[in-house]
Design a protein around this nucleic acid. Sequence first.
DNA 1: GCCGCTTACGAAAACGGTTTCGTGTTAATA
DNA 2: TATTAACACGAAACCGTTTTCGTAAGCGGC
Lengths: 344, 344
Amino acid sequence: MKRKITLKHIARELDVSISTVSKALKNSEEIGQDTKEKIQAFARLYNYRPNNIAISLKNKKTKNIGVIIPDIVHHFFTTVFRGIEKYANAKGYNVIVCVSDESFDKEVINMEMLANGSIDGFIMALAGETQLKNDYNHLKEVTEQGIPLVLFDRVTDEIHCDKVIINDEEAAYLAVKKLIASGRREIALVTTEGYLNVSAKRTEGYYRALREHGLPVQPDLVLQLPYQKEDDKKSEAFFRERSMDAVLCVNEIFAVKSMGIVQRLGKRVPEDIAFIGFTDGILSRLSTPTLSSVDQHGELMGETAARMLIEKVENDHEQEEESYETKIISATLVERESTLGTVN
Amino acid sequence: MKRKITLKHIARELDVSISTVSKALKNSEEIGQDTKEKIQAFARLYNYRPNNIAISLKNKKTKNIGVIIPDIVHHFFTTVFRGIEKYANAKGYNVIVCVSDESFDKEVINMEMLANGSIDGFIMALAGETQLKNDYNHLKEVTEQGIPLVLFDRVTDEIHCDKVIINDEEAAYLAVKKLIASGRREIALVTTEGYLNVSAKRTEGYYRALREHGLPVQPDLVLQLPYQKEDDKKSEAFFRERSMDAVLCVNEIFAVKSMGIVQRLGKRVPEDIAFIGFTDGILSRLSTPTLSSVDQHGELMGETAARMLIEKVENDHEQEEESYETKIISATLVERESTLGTVN
DNA sequence: GCCGCTTACGAAAACGGTTTCGTGTTAATA
DNA sequence: TATTAACACGAAACCGTTTTCGTAAGCGGC
């Protein structure tokens, strides 16, 4: 087992000082040509690599960024993460991931853990519980310490920092508008129970589209499901008892499940009922029929967040009056079989 | 912007030495009660937290583990990752993720990056390209330096280290056996193009089951698809031209796609053709019909890998003759609609 | 022979902790 | 009263780098 070699070892072995070795390896002008060659050859031979931790301590920069997300087994977050990882890696950063599991406490613990020197900045999407509690002191502490923070998707107005979101309201509005344009009139909405602000915004867009086209807003046609638990009975009852010719769902899981239910009830998709979901993932592409879906461009979102963060991290030089941006990524509707054709 | 406070600040402010502060905060017996209280109160007031980097440098332990996986937008790896993250977090470790993107070079670069002090150990699944090249020098270097390594799923015999795999051959064998037991006789296989050893093992199990039941082995009934690109024409031709009454697929994406194709060709699932896939993910649960699938217990796998790694990391005390284990997780078949009923 | 300049290198501080080993003060003991 | 042990704290080394500053040696010029 050959242990890692350090500057000290090289110095001792070659009978020079540590500083000389350090400079020689950086090809400093200060060191004589022959000494440099001798040291560099030795270092190469023994495969010397500087210790990241020591360098981090010295420069007070870790080249690590912390990512805290509510869930990792979730297509959208995974996609965003890929965008972050790709960009960060290209810039020489590593990514430490913590999963808050939608829990406020875990989010707080993870942030505190990482904030003590482990990372140069945070990228995160808020846990559902955090949004519910509306308690953002852990975020405030971090930003007050001068640690850059970028929020994405699940954001809050309470914190001043960079943000990346999609135009949820608008995207839902446009999706419903499309349904109306194709002749649908009784449009249902399947959303989550309350607290997620993205769902709320999509719901707003849905209402706005109905209103603007003079369609009645029927609370009856809105189904609220628990976020991550299954509640098939509730859905089945909803689709059996209500009549509709189109459905907008705030995620693709709700959409695919709902499609399955109505199909079992003997309805045809899209002939009897059209479907549009959010999050254009693998489910949308592989369901039968394939699902029209609002693509949130997760990878772009991740890349954007990483770009903003690293920009802030590297321009730490007395930032001229903190200026924060909110970038809005335009979601786009990907049309597939579940909305084919026009009624009438 | 209140900067992070250090021992030095506290020492200066309270007019004691740094060592006294350090000891007082650890509640050392050495320090007088009143001094301790004064220091602790001050530290609490200013929210002192020790700097992780400094501690890492001192103990030569980072409390970070490095995870290198080929892909993150992939249900199985994501699930394993969740298992790793949960266990690691519970043990006070953070996880640094790097995505090799199936590329040998990226795998090498990421490993070298992390191996220079950033992590205490590695958990990884080999990139496809690495398995193709059969070049594991980067892994050897790491293990020779005494850095613990645990391989999972995509492993190699070339490297001596802890491993976690599932019984791929056996699982495929049992799946096919089940199909045969329910009366199926012409069983096709949809697998990947060559190099992935997990696919190879599943293929072996498929063949063994056929042989043991005296069924003819028909190379015609084996479809090889490129790993991550779409090739729908090839699949369509395959299912149009061949006749079969059951299909085993080495992953759930192939399975769901194939089901879609045969359904469009007018066949009924499971009446005409039964399907079994590998990787029991969201697709299996939500496809129509729902897909019978081999559950690889990714989360358990991740947890197991993390447990083995941390065990090695923390018992670094002159490990009594390196002893490495290979744990085998038993996959289990989850039966759903796509294999319902018996033929005859 | 002395001054001053360049060249080539080393000493030491610093990053933020932990830990070992003194050491001065006080109180108990002979 | 002198010895000693307990107590409470500080100095300094160390982890592995980087970087500033100091300086010895060598040399040319006067």
